[in-house]
């Protein structure tokens, strides 16, 4: 049995656990704990301390796992472990909370430094009135025009599927680019 992994990362309360819950065929194995910090407790009661774990069976020989990373920076040590052997990663951003954009950028930079893996940014909570537009988010997060920023509603299955598919298309594009670079180098 072959297993592959997609990592879902992002700041605290961005919607990573919900994202995985929406498409996982098993009950998400979540290691949530009650929050201790007052400021964080104002936003939600519990958070992921190690990881969320969801599964999608592709066929009898292949299983896709979705791993959700903890949002807070004090769990940085987990990220490098989680990124080992992944197909790509998704950075979830709460489009209604500009105060988390800085952290989203830092997380993105950290993941990019671990491995040159394809990724997409999911602009979550687009159904809420205060959500920033995707293109405004792109500028706020200083993302280049080639980075896919996909509107997302983590509670909506079709929306979550779209994000996953966009990531997979990016992985195929990435493989094509790698191949053409290798061909150019071998010609030289």
């Amino acid at each position: 049995m072959q297993t592959v992994k997609i990592v879902v990362t992002g700041p605290f309360n961005a919607g990573k656990t919900q994202f995985i819950r929406t498409v996982s065929e098993i009950d998400v194995v979540s290691t949530e704990r009650k929050l201790t910090a007052d400021t964080e407790r104002q936003v939600k009661e519990s958070t992921t301390v190690a990881m969320d774990f969801g599964r999608i069976t592709i066929d009898e020989n292949l299983v896709l796992y979705l791993f959700g990373t903890p949002g807070q920076r004090r769990f940085d040590f987990m990220w490098e472990i989680l990124s080992e052997g992944m197909l790509g990663f998704i950075v979830m951003v709460d489009s209604t909370r500009p105060e988390t954009f800085h952290e989203a950028r830092s997380i993105l930079e950290a993941f990019k430094s671990f491995a040159p893996t394809p990724y997409v940014v999911a602009a979550n909570k687009q159904d809420l009135e205060d959500a920033w537009d995707v293109e405004d988010l792109r500028i706020a997060l200083r993302l280049g025009p080639n980075v896919k920023v996909v509107p997302c509603i983590a509670t909506d299955k079709e929306s979550v599927k779209r994000v996953l598919l966009e990531l997979l298309y990016s992985i195929i594009e990435y493989l094509d680019e790698m191949e053409s670079t290798e061909q150019q180098q071998s010609r030289r």
Binding site: I58, A115, L168
Partner: peptide, 26 residues
Amino acid sequence: PEIKLAFSDRPKEERLSLLNKIIDRI
């Protein structure tokens, strides 16, 4: 950095086939 990505040890055709399987399933 030396981080091993999924399918990185497979030939391109096989990687594409596995990815397409995942896409179809999703």
